[in-house]
Amino acid sequence: MNTILIRRLASSLVTMIAASFIIFMLVEASPGNVARKTLGPFASEEQVLLLYERLHLNDPVLVRYGRWLGVLVGLQADPLQDPDLGLGFEDPRGDRYFGNFGYSSMMNMPVADIIWERLGNSLKLAALAFATIVPLAILIGTYAGLRANKPADRAVTIVTTMLASIPEFASAVILASVFVVWLGWLPGTSPLQTAGGWPIYLQYILPVTVLALYVTAYVTRFVRTSVMEVMQTPYVRTAVLKGLKPRQVVARHVMRNAMMAPFTIILLQINWLISGVVVTEVVFAYPGIGRMLLEAAMFGDIALIEATSLITVAIAISTQLVGDVGYVLLNPRIRLS
């Protein structure tokens, strides 16, 4: 077990480094001048050239990538923060610290000041949604899977198919028009500020519901199929013919085996819930990381794009790691082969 863990950790680290290189290549070594992107469209050609020189943008890509990594882990000073440049990029933490993602030209503050707060907001939203989705999906999916092709199962299938095919923006608008416009029970936007007069917890309800509806429907269908398949296996027949009660058969013999396949899919939802829910965040003006990435990309804020992408990749790799280890724990055939 320990060797599996060490091995997986090592490969995660390698993946992370490879991903960071790809992100760096895409953002900084892609066509277009980093100096120009940093200074914006209104800077003069002279200023751009000066910055180009100062940043040593003529160096080979690998050297620049090394420097960039150095800044990120705090081994090197961020050249953009050099007061001689006159860019006015100031960071109270200094120019050399671990997790120095640079300076956001869009927000005019250090990336580190923005990103952790946004990430925290996204995590809160994802955690609430996840806590709703997983129990619901397992419950409804198992209920339907145990009654495969009976009326209850058909009903579940129809409802989940419908819910999974309604896009988030549509369900968001429908829910908002009912609960915000018509009934007036909930706020229409969720900026997580109390200035609008709505308490924070009410601001979570609509975004969480929109996400939960969509993902629960999707995951339920996987759980249902998996439970249905396990119910038809010879070992479940063995359990029934042992004289176990139906509840014992399901709890002891069906659940663990039936959770193996949906487990991976459930974990994949975490990635999406944290960093992929751009639409929901935009509709409800929720200050999460997905919306920020979109804004940063449209503005051309290099440092913010890099930071957000890196964090997103890190989250994906961690859930992958959790998924692999969890799967091994669930399935003794892998653990002990």
Binding site: Y235, R237, T238, A239, R252, N257, N331, P332, R333
Partner: peptide, 11 residues
């Protein structure tokens, strides 16, 4: 007939 599938693989 098939003992390998008649036993629960995770128990």
């Amino acid at each position: 007939q098939d003992a390998s599938s008649a036993l629960n693989p995770t128990m």
